[in-house]
Write a protein that binds this DNA or RNA. Structure first.
Lengths: 102, 102
DNA sequence: AACCTATATAGTAAGTTATCTATATTGATG
DNA sequence: CATCAATATAGATAACTTACTATATAGGTT
């Protein structure tokens, strides 16, 4: 599938969009973490699960969809997995879309 | 549903994205029409159907999804229906998205 | 009025998505 | 090494999406 379409499908879900909005500004939306820096490493699945009020496997599945679209990257530290946005992918995506309005 | 999500869902389909890309630059993608100006009135369902190679009811359904998302407006002339993009909605949408990459 | 043409609607089948529960895995720690 | 905590995987199900065919409707045109 085309990369823009993959991203659009990933974002075309209110729960995933919420998560993206949260993790692009993690300091504003999540508590400080003991392991894993909110900015440098990202936000752990547990915190996202608490905030979005879905079950953990459901969140894991949403995060995989965001990751497969390239919107986030993940890093494992101990037994946490931290997700953070890939701003480069995001800005290219928005750039690609913008021809529609010109 | 939130308006951004409605738009994302409408665009998260390769066929509809193709159609949008075509109708934002109709002169480049469609033949001149006898009734209905490509720019002022939009592109008729028949021309889109020919180009996308889907059946007419399928195209009508895709166009309704784009219209319900606010991405296009429609105008009936005789027994044609012409669709053209709503550039204002498109640019607001892109604007709303862009905070993700900042 | 009958007919033709463009689009709309109805109904359906196949595929995909979103969510859950139950369980497995992985890695740290007492 | 047994246990606990965090995440992953499997499997089920309900809802939604995409496409089709068949048919209806609406408006010109002969």
């Amino acid at each position: 599938m085309e990369s823009t379409t993959l991203i659009l499908r990933a974002l075309a879900n209110e729960k995933r969009m919420k998560i993206m909005n949260w993790i692009v500004d993690p300091l504003a939306h999540f508590p400080k973490q003991i392991d894993g820096d909110l900015i440098d490493d990202g936000v752990c699945v547990g915190h996202i699960t608490d905030k979005i009020k879905l079950k953990q496997p459901t969140v894991t599945s949403h995060m995989k969809i965001l990751e497969e679209a390239g919107l986030v990257t993940s890093k494992k530290i101990k037994n946490w997995v931290f997700y953070k946005p890939d701003k480069k992918v995001l800005s290219k995506f928005i750039d690609d879309l913008s021809h529609l309005s010109q």
